[in-house]
Nucleic acid binder design. Structure first.
Lengths: 142, 142
DNA sequence: CTTCGCACTTGCAAAATGCAAGCACCAAGA
DNA sequence: TCTTGGTGCTTGCATTTTGCAAGTGCGAAG
């Protein structure tokens, strides 16, 4: 896995040192909005991430403490990736990615489809809903 | 300049196709929070962007309509890069990058130093302040 | 008419990404 | 027990992107 080097002590720069690439936030998107949790599920996203890149990014997210990896109770050859409490502050950032993209581009869509409308109607309520869902999954995984 | 290909029609994915790298948002940061406007000024940021990468990213931002490039009135061998109205929706995203980084990392700092405190006190007022500043500069550049 | 500042461009090395194939492990069925 | 299939990767190699240092062109200043 690539070693993270912080180019400066600027808050924005440090954040980009972790999240500033084309794939990491897409994996987090799938975990947050689609409750995906396995390697296979991440691989199946339509953007088509390469398997070695996915392995690299999952390891990075785990090392950063944003995600935990556990053997599935039902199938010992399967791993379950779960978001951590530390990942919850990513939600407002993710929301702004959606809102920016929706104003900047035509013909894009969100998943779930109602996400954009919900964010525009009440950002706080929408963020709370997804935060609650993450916390519920953390408890279920324990 | 690299050609942008949209990997899917997902709003988040499309946004990352433009902004998802380690340098583009740093250039925008310098324009937004430090009112930098020239190649030299962008080069002088402490993260140390390579000159060819900077040229590439400025061309991309210009092509995307987020930035305009004009010859300086005072010096014909100098160019002035100015944010456009289209770039203003990036402000909330930039704010969340700051807020995430500030909770995630210790020992980071913002420029201006009071930015974090202002965002925490009143996000809306802070965003308005910077939006107004961008609009003022657009008018000045005309 | 020369030197300087400014905005790049170029050539080449290094690193990251993309792609296809292969591997190790567990589970389930014959 | 042997095989087949699901799952989560790893590996090797080609391509693309990035990083670095040096060079270029052009208007301004002396």
């Amino acid at each position: 896995m690539k070693q993270i080097t912080h180019r400066s002590n600027c808050t924005i720069s440090c954040t980009l040192d972790i999240l500033g690439d084309k794939w990491t936030l897409l994996v987090l998107r799938d975990m947050i909005f689609e409750e995906r949790s396995s390697y296979r599920e991440f691989m199946s996203s339509e953007e088509g991430i390469a398997s070695n890149i996915l392995a690299d990014r999952l390891a990075l997210l785990e090392r950063e403490g944003l995600v935990t990896k556990k053997v599935s109770a039902a199938n010992k050859s399967k791993f379950i990736y779960t978001l951590t409490e530390k990942a919850i502050p990513i939600l407002p950032l993710m929301a702004e990615l959606v809102l920016f993209g929706a104003t900047y581009f035509d013909f894009t869509s969100t998943r779930p489809p109602e996400l954009l409308e919900q964010l525009r109607k009440s950002k706080a309520a929408t963020l709370k809903k997804y935060a609650d869902r993450i916390r519920r999954r953390i408890k279920e995984a324990e």
